[in-house]
Design a protein around this nucleic acid. Structure first.
Lengths: 216, 216
DNA sequence: GTCTATATCCCGATAGAC
DNA sequence: GTCTATCGGGATATAGAC
């Protein structure tokens, strides 16, 4: 479907995908809250009413972006931790991948976590986070002698550590530009290693598996 | 509308403070990006032009809110870690206070970290974060035999861990309602303790002191 | 210091033509 | 599936009266 001239002919069959792409660009520039269907349409050269053929409303498009974001995050984490030789290094690599996603794909990161969308109204979003949990949990299980309560606790701690580094990197805490980004990735790895070194002090946590699936 | 026997006297000398208060309320309801001067004015019963006597523009008001947020955060962290008897427990308590601020004062937390405001155009915001750094650094120094590079590294790791817990608590990762909030606080303390237990594995970091003061 | 009034702009969403 | 046209709403910010 893609031609040499890229963006001009999207409105002949690929508008949906083009809208997601443009949404990512726009979020990178103005943030999730600053994103608007109107500007996305303008940028693609289509009428403001065109997106409504592909998405129910603004939130529906944002949910689609969030789903893609989760997929990319999952891929990044999985790829980085795939060729680790020890469970410890697998968890460290997972943290590294998580933060790398946060700094390299800032717009996607914000789409996944920055939006205030009803996770219940978009069930595919809940499903998209499944593989990510498994990536952290698998390695954590190997470090916890198969105890799921210890593994869940450890996986949650590592993921939260990674998330903290990603968020603070975006705030500029680790310095500006690519250097700050790289430092954030390195720091996340180092901090995770220290956390794993002292993991004996971390209490187990029952039912950690079901924590981020809200059940109202 | 104004009430007939009992006037609202905000617009007689205290509008500035009232605007900050109302901004906090509004941010709690709609997020910092969804905040508007117009609605704040409406809620206070003043004209939309009134705020411009006290703030240059919307961002200026948001910066004032952020400054207050930093002060409250600093107080919360300091109060919680004040009566700790060991450096370890002081750092753990600091993390606890940080997360408690995040879950108890969600709007302030978002005002301090969620806004996309030029930190350079509002220097008082940079100054407001100083005491917070000291709170973490002081305890970290005592744990690092006075080595500032090790202390800076440790303080940064603990603060980032706390921040991660606060952010993920607001995303609902630790569960809904007060139970989720309390769990987040507890987990932050436990994870910090594990991190401190394994701190020998954490490399020192030169110049960590100046990290979050962007110098472009 | 606050009000009224206004200029200017952007947004989401829908109806109906093609 | 896309366009034109439009409705209804809300935002920032300024000018000038009091």
């Amino acid at each position: 479907m893609r031609r040499a001239g890229k963006k001009q002919h999207y409105h002949h069959g690929d508008l949906r995908a083009a809208l997601v792409d443009t949404a990512v660009e726009l979020i990178a520039e103005r943030g999730v809250a600053g994103f608007s269907l109107a500007e996305a349409s303008r940028r693609l050269g289509v009428a403001v009413s065109a997106p409504y053929r592909h998405f129910a409303d603004r939130d529906d498009l944002l949910a689609a972006v969030a789903v893609r974001a989760c997929e990319v995050l999952n891929d990044t984490v999985t790829a980085e931790s795939a060729d680790a030789h020890t469970p410890t290094e697998a968890l460290v690599a997972a943290a590294r991948g998580y933060v790398r996603f946060g700094v390299d794909q800032r717009a996607l990161f914000e789409a996944a976590f920055g939006g205030k969308l009803d996770r219940l109204r978009h069930p595919e979003l809940l499903r998209a986070t499944g593989p990510l949990k498994d990536a952290f949990l698998g390695a954590a299980l190997a470090l916890s002698d198969g105890d799921p309560d210890r593994a869940g606790s450890l996986a949650l701690a590592v993921a939260t550590t990674a998330h903290g580094h990603a968020v603070m990197a975006q705030l500029g805490t680790f310095g500006p530009g690519p250097d700050g980004a790289e430092l954030a990735v390195t720091r996340a790895a180092d901090t995770t290693r220290a956390l794993l070194t002292g993991r004996a002090a971390l209490p187990p946590l029952p039912n950690a598996l079901h924590l981020d699936t809200p059940t109202p």
